[in-house]
């Protein structure tokens, strides 16, 4: 499993206090919100903060563009990679 993806999943589980879910339960390209993990808009805000803290990347205000980055673990990983200074 991709190391970054795994870390994102762990941050996700911890930040949102997801019970009974382990990283393996989260499919890389499955939607995080709505049907997939069943997260809601409040969770999105929390997740944004957690990603910012853990990966040192920031999101502009929440708009449709940012929402795309939250679509799945893969999308988040791609965003983090593109925005992390080496």
């Amino acid at each position: 499993m991709d190391d970054l993806n795994l870390r994102i999943k762990e941050v996700l589980i911890r930040a949102l206090d997801l019970e009974e879910i382990i990283p393996e339960d989260i499919v890389d390209d499955a939607p995080l919100f709505g049907d997939g993990l069943g997260l809601d808009s409040i969770d999105a805000l929390e997740l944004g903060i957690a990603i910012k803290e853990n990966f040192n990347v920031s999101f502009a205000t929440v708009n449709d563009e940012t929402r795309k980055h939250f679509a799945s673990v893969n999308a988040l990983a791609a965003y983090i990679r593109a925005n992390t200074k080496e």
């Binding site: 206090d17 019970e19 919100f33 709505g34 049907d35 069943g38 809601d40 808009s41």
Partner: peptide, 14 residues
């Protein structure tokens, strides 16, 4: 429950 309730009010812990 997701058929009846909004996501925000779905029980998160069981």
């Amino acid at each position: 429950l997701s058929g009846y309730l909004e996501r925000t009010v779905l029980p998160k812990k069981w």
